[in-house]
Write a protein that binds this DNA or RNA. Structure first.
Lengths: 345, 345
DNA sequence: ACCTTGTATTCTCACGTTGTAGTCGCGGCG
DNA sequence: CGCCGCGACTACAACGTGAGAATACAAGGT
């Protein structure tokens, strides 16, 4: 025997079988429900399973069947509130269908994202849910192993994988229109990226533009300060640039909530009151938006629904219940109006 | 054949062996270097490996060696910024040693925590890193399977497992002393729990007390409003209670940053300026603390170091490089002074 | 020349699981 | 009365790997 001898080994099918006085395969049948088992036997086996605390060895199952019941979930930036909140929903949705989730953090690095999309993170993985940031279409096509993949977010990486996203153009348009309805007229946007804007930036800018033009307003290029990334400091520094303008804006649409929170801070540092001197709105509806001072108006995707759809979609691929062309799924959103955009003007 | 037929099958040891005209075990020896192999043979085998693009099947290897290469990481509340930020560091530290992390969220429920600590999570798990909340020592002792376990945080669950934590008493004392040094005298603390305070509450209160007494100040029971949990709303409601007092405090030490952020909001709603009317400090140094308005003074644990130590410690147990008594590891912390506690008084 | 020593390689089995091909017993039908 | 068919269960093989025991072979000492 070469195995390391560690006290009580985890119970195996064999142990359950002996206790229940049946064959190993019968226990396997009870666990998987592949073959009908007589009610009396099933009950006896189930009692033995509970008594021993049996849990299937996924490594062995994977070796035998090629499936493990584990999927990977990768975000560019896990501590970002939006991703963390979405992650919890994905884990919950997966658990509801008996699937375990391995989390990973790519840092937005294309190489790390490709690694995940190829399932090389762990050989035991059946499928992947990935929110890409740096990955481009050509790179994704070069992945070494084609495992079922569902993409989250707005990046269009071609017809290689199913994708779940919300309508960014419509969301941006809706929240911009809300600013206009509240009476703001000189409206800036924080989140454009120059050079090489991400899909998020392009789509939210399009929505922003459409809303302004629809209201007969013009888009002032000076009111579109570019940012490097989508974190608080980026929002703060963009806001500072806006506030230095001779004719500063009276409202700002930030392309995500973190940018908005940074902008909020910069406005505060400049001695401005929000929303009386300047309105600020965001996108994502992270929990913190509700507790910001002032609380933040934002576009709220239905995170639970997104997670649910992504998991369902991936499982259909893994279980080969669906094998058609790649699908694009677009759940809805709401605009949540809070203090940061509702001055009594 | 029952395996799902997916295109060209990956090359196996057997294929390499046939091409190189040696036995399977010899190839295995070349790959793993367990047994010396003659130079000529090794070269021939290596050429065959390269020619076929052979890559070991980790699933099979794991089945054989009894290890899964997966560890579980469980927090009471994953979307909490402190836990999310720590989780990312653990994932990164684990990846550096070739280990995959399975994340779980216990909600602080003792039963869920026991399940995790027993390795009954879902897949085959080599070890567990757990941040317990509700679990007590007696319950932990009753775990059904003794798998390597490293605890994170201040809860002392006896000598059953290694534990990585920072010195909460010292951290609380240091940040309280900072408030005293800044000239604040009527100092409150938000985070006590009544009944059944957690270890966190007890230790941070002890540090708080020690600092006050060391400065010749007395602890006013009215300035210790209990909270239910450690989220923003708890901090906000405790703060509102404090502000209703006839003789309200001039500074508040919150036992974590989320409480402090909630307190900040309540102070703002009450029309108070921070830190001029009242100072607020926290604990954890979550990223958000730096961008709060005003930015938050807090106690900063070195999350990367904590994660590194926890993973290293666990791997030593898993690989049986260490089998001695359970260890208590206490990395350092810093007090990060920001705006919320530095009025020009 | 034969045996010992040691090194290089092969043989065989087991890890825990599931699919296939059975076996067993029982009731119904010819 | 015997045979068929059916449902419930069992025996066995195999997934790819790694470890120990067994074997082959060469060199050196007697």
């Amino acid at each position: 025997m070469s195995m390391p001898t560690e006290g009580p080994t985890a119970p195996r099918l064999k142990d359950v079988a002996e206790l229940a006085q049946v064959s190993v395969k019968t226990v396997s049948n009870v666990v998987n429900g592949t073959t009908p088992v007589a009610e009396a036997t099933r009950e006896r086996v189930q009692r033995a399973i509970d008594a021993l605390g049996y849990h299937p060895n996924l490594t062995a199952r994977r070796l035998r069947t090629g499936r493990s019941g584990v999927i990977a979930l990768a975000f560019p930036e896990l501590p970002s509130p939006y991703f963390a909140e979405l992650a919890v929903e994905v884990i919950a949705a997966a658990r509801r269908v008996g699937i375990t989730v391995l989390m990973d953090d790519t840092g937005g690095d294309p190489a790390a994202e490709l690694r995940i999309a190829s399932g090389l993170g762990d050989p035991m993985i059946d499928g992947v849910i990935l929110s890409p940031l740096g990955l481009d279409q050509a790179t994704l096509l070069s992945r070494s192993r084609e495992i079922p993949l569902v993409l989250l977010g707005e990046a269009d990486l071609g017809p290689v994988a199913d994708r779940v996203h919300i309508d960014n153009v419509a969301g941006a348009r809706a929240v911009t229109r809300h600013l206009i309805d509240e009476g703001y007229r000189r409206i800036a946007a924080i989140g454009w990226q120059d050079p090489s804007p991400r899909a998020t930036a392009e789509q939210r800018l399009t929505g922003f533009r459409t809303a302004l033009e629809g209201a007969g307003l013009t888009v002032d290029q000076a009111l579109l300060p570019p940012v490097r990334a989508y974190f608080r400091p980026d929002g703060a520094s963009a806001m500072r640039r806006l506030l230095k303008l001779p004719d500063r804006p009276d409202a700002v649409f930030c392309f995500n909530d973190l940018l908005a929170l940074g902008a909020l801070r910069a406005a505060h540092e400049a001695g401005l009151r929000v929303p009386d001197d300047i309105a600020i709105v965001g996108f994502d509806d992270v929990e913190e938006a509700e507790y910001a001072i002032p609380s933040l108006t934002t576009v709220a995707p239905d995170k639970r629904h997104i997670a649910e759809l992504a998991v369902r979609c991936l499982m259909e691929r893994i279980e080969k219940r669906y094998d058609g062309p790649s699908r694009l799924i677009t759940p809805g959103f709401r605009v949540v109006v809070r203090e940061s955009s509702t001055s009594a003007r």
